[in-house]
């Protein structure tokens, strides 16, 4: 009898493992994953800088006005390797050469690589802090939205009937409120600032996920493996969370990847309007500040911030699409009878 085991596929692979293998084959997805990873490192670095300043109880440089350094261009445009340099203390012109020229050039390159803004603050540092805020918003809103969406979606899909009616009514009501107005209303209640952003985005974002999960659960609840679980005497809670949920969890992952940049976009927009982040360098606030001097040729703040937003949104969206392809069971090799 054990001889019949020979035709087992050669090595043990989970379905998640296979999905990862498929994702690896998609070059664009891997590039996007690297970009997302890069932003994540940037956000963690920003968090470190923020925490360090908080711990030392000093105002970080990206918050401090330094009017001597207003509107410095990005360092490569400031002729960092110039042979002459004005000594800041004596006011004399110093001629540099050779090794010291290279050294001062390198240090010039590293100071304000993306220039400074109207208050002389380093654009790069502020961009990093913006990344930190964006990640915070993306993660915390997901932490609010995913549990609500998954739980309600599972309950609605699994139990059907009255439960389903109520939950569908609930999310239809939420979906019918114009998103921005809802967020504004929440900002009115809890006050401006990050809390309002978290709640506003989090409490609207669960709707889409809930609807998707409900649909998937409805699809799965009459599958033979669920019937088998019923016949074995497995309880409802266990069937929902141990049997159905793992089989529909790919929806959560894909939705998370697609909603994350959407949440970031909303945060930027709210901060741009002035009802979002307060007193911290969010991307939205940076854009709002940058537009004032844009027509005077101060392009760098606007350019770098929009590029940062562009790449993170693009990377997350492409990654989300690739994940959907990789995780979709219908494309699974060997085919499932369904």
């Amino acid at each position: 009898m054990s001889a019949s085991m020979d035709n087992l596929s050669s090595d043990g692979r989970t379905l998640w493992g296979e999905a990862w293998r498929r994702l690896r084959r998609n070059r664009l997805a891997m590039i996007c994953l690297w970009i997302v990873g890069f932003y994540t490192v940037l956000a963690l670095y920003g968090e470190g800088v923020y925490r360090w300043h908080q711990w030392r109880d000093i105002t970080p440089s990206y918050q401090r006005a330094n009017l001597d350094k207003q509107y410095l261009e990005p360092s490569p445009l400031r002729q960092p390797f110039a042979a002459e340099r004005v000594d800041s203390q004596t006011g004399e012109t110093v001629v540099l050469s050779g090794w010291s020229r290279l050294r001062s050039g390198m240090s010039n390159l590293l100071t304000h690589p993306m220039g400074t803004d109207g208050l002389g603050r380093d654009v790069f540092q502020r961009l990093v802090q913006g990344t930190r805020i964006a990640y915070q918003v993306g993660i915390i809103t997901s932490l609010i939205a995913i549990p609500i969406g998954v739980l309600l979606g599972c309950l609605a899909g699994y139990f059907g009937g009255r439960t389903d009616d109520f939950i569908v009514w609930l999310y239809s009501t939420f979906a019918a409120i114009p998103g921005l107005l809802f967020i504004l209303a929440i900002a009115m209640v809890v006050g401006q600032g990050l809390l309002g952003v978290y709640l506003g985005i989090g409490l609207t974002m669960w709707v889409g996920l809930c609807r998707l999960i409900r649909g998937e659960v409805i699809k799965h609840k009459d599958r033979p493996y669920v019937t088998a679980a019923h016949a074995l005497g497995v309880g409802h809670t266990r069937i929902i969370f141990r049997h159905i949920l793992p089989n529909v969890f790919h929806v959560v992952i894909v939705t998370f990847t697609l909603r994350f940049p959407a949440a970031i976009g909303t945060e930027v927009f709210l901060s741009f309007l002035g009802i979002g982040v307060q007193g911290e360098p969010s991307w939205g606030i940076m854009i709002s500040n940058a537009r004032l001097r844009l027509w005077h040729g101060v392009w760098w703040e606007m350019a770098f911030v929009t590029a940062a937003i562009f790449f993170i949104v693009l990377a997350f969206n492409l990654l989300g699409d690739a994940l959907r392809d990789a995780l979709d069971p219908r494309l699974r090799e060997g085919g499932e009878s369904s």
Binding site: Y225, A228, H243, N247
Partner: peptide
């Protein structure tokens, strides 16, 4: 094929 949970 269908009566076993694919994720377990």
């Amino acid at each position: 094929y269908g009566s076993l949970n694919a994720r377990m």
